[in-house]
Amino acid sequence: MRKNIPAFALITTILVLWQIIAILLDAPYILPSPTQIAAKLWELRETLFLVQLPATMGVTFMGLGISVAFGLGLAVAMDCSEKLANALYPVIVASQTIPTTAIAPLFVLWFGYSIWSKVLVTVLMTFFPITIAVFDGLKSTSREMEELLITYGASKKDIFFKLKVPQSLPHFFSAIKMAVPLSIIGAAIAEWLGAQSGLGYFSKRMMTQLDGAGVFAPIVLLSAVAMLIVAIINIIEKKLLGWRKEI
């Protein structure tokens, strides 16, 4: 707890400075103060928490789920076949050079305002870290441990489940922790570009009404949710990877 004190102090200082500047500027449509944002959050709590947040979370989790399944599948396939890895790895890396925000309107054109256009943006942003991290994890398997298993008569399946999977679990967790905020950002961007509900859509709507606090409120909520999910993943990681402590 004590190690978090500097971070709390810094955040408090920034919030106080922000509050002072916002009061001095007195232009809430450009820079609303933190207290105005908090008030807005409370005022819009029903729509934000009960309508917009579930919509964004639907996109986020669907995108994340597809990314995990797709990323794990690709990583395992590339680990099994060197030829496949040589063919796919550069393509996967190249896919990250596509500016997602620029291509997203195209997805709206393809899939309309349905959930799939937004899920696709999320998947495009998150499958990369999952695929690469898990693939690197599978590849970082200790050669000596693998040979030891071979001398015990282990099959490829044994090596995969008894060595490669547990050894790449820490990589998987790092990837998920990276992918969660990215998937929320992806969902919000997609909603900005074309949607009928969701926190990104709501934030954009507030923008058109020049409601500064209304723009910020959904963003604050998104950040809080991202932090909460990462914290939950941290707890699961500590439970599952207890053997890593003090290494």
Binding site: S142, E144, M145, E147, L148, T151, Y152, K162, L163, P166, Q167, L169, L241, W243, R244, I247
Partner: peptide
């Protein structure tokens, strides 16, 4: 059965 210099115990087991 092979026993190497490093114990090669699996840290997660």
């Amino acid at each position: 059965a092979y026993m190497p210099q490093k114990d090669l115990l699996f840290p997660w087991r």
